[in-house]
Design a protein around this nucleic acid. Structure first.
Lengths: 113, 113
DNA sequence: TAAGTATATTCGTTGTTGCGAATATACTTA
DNA sequence: TAAGTATATTCGCAACAACGAATATACTTA
């Protein structure tokens, strides 16, 4: 496999490698939503949401459609939803470890805080 | 979906978000390999390989088995191979854009170098 | 035990990412 | 045109990731 393809895959994973961006993709799973709705549902800063959307747009993971004042986002290709679904199965298969890992993450959060 | 699950998914994507680590997982696709063999096939620094393997181990993406002097690595769960396969289909479906993105990556590499 | 081989870890540097605050842009309605 | 609403971009900073050089650990063989 050419390195360029690996680079491409890596860049997509990179784009998905953030809880907020995963949350966005999953919010959009059942159809488009305006940026404002995403912000409201996730309860995050406007600028922050916009930055994450910008990352997803740059990788063509989402597409946007402007309507008047608003910008509606949707997931471009259901294959990515499929990726997330496989990940969910992965999670379920290893739920115990996952729990342990999460505890670990949590602990180091507190440790540094 | 709880945020903890998203955090877990994100951490797995993060671990896969590097061309070298993708290369390692794909090398291991057909069975285990010693660290030395991975290094040789990828032509990278020993320390660098070891660091990447360490990331994959930490997320339980690979398991290792010590035999004498050597450490053999293998992919723990074929579901992750499946994820990479879906990504390949994704790549094929959007090959033109992917090419454009790769050119972009290449251009900015040169621009900064 | 000493030298050799395979692998892992630590260290310092450099580049990247994520955040909120501030600001900019684009559209709408008065 | 001015004020208002929705979204995007820029900036400065703190945290993190990646690299190679150096070093450490673990095993093997002489």
């Amino acid at each position: 496999m050419p390195d360029s393809l690996r680079q491409f895959k890596a860049s997509i994973f990179q784009a998905l490698a953030h809880p907020t961006r995963i949350a966005i993709v999953e919010l959009l799973r059942d159809g488009e939503l305006a940026a404002g709705a995403i912000i409201e549902r996730l309860g995050i800063e406007q600028a922050n949401a916009s930055q994450h959307l910008s990352v997803l747009r740059a990788k063509h993971i989402v597409t946007s459609r402007k309507e008047g004042n608003q910008v509606f986002y949707s997931v471009r290709d259901p294959l990515l939803i499929e990726v997330l679904d496989v990940m969910r199965r992965y999670f379920q298969a290893h739920i115990e470890e996952a729990m342990a890992m999460l505890k670990e993450i949590d602990r180091s959060d507190k440790g540094n805080g």
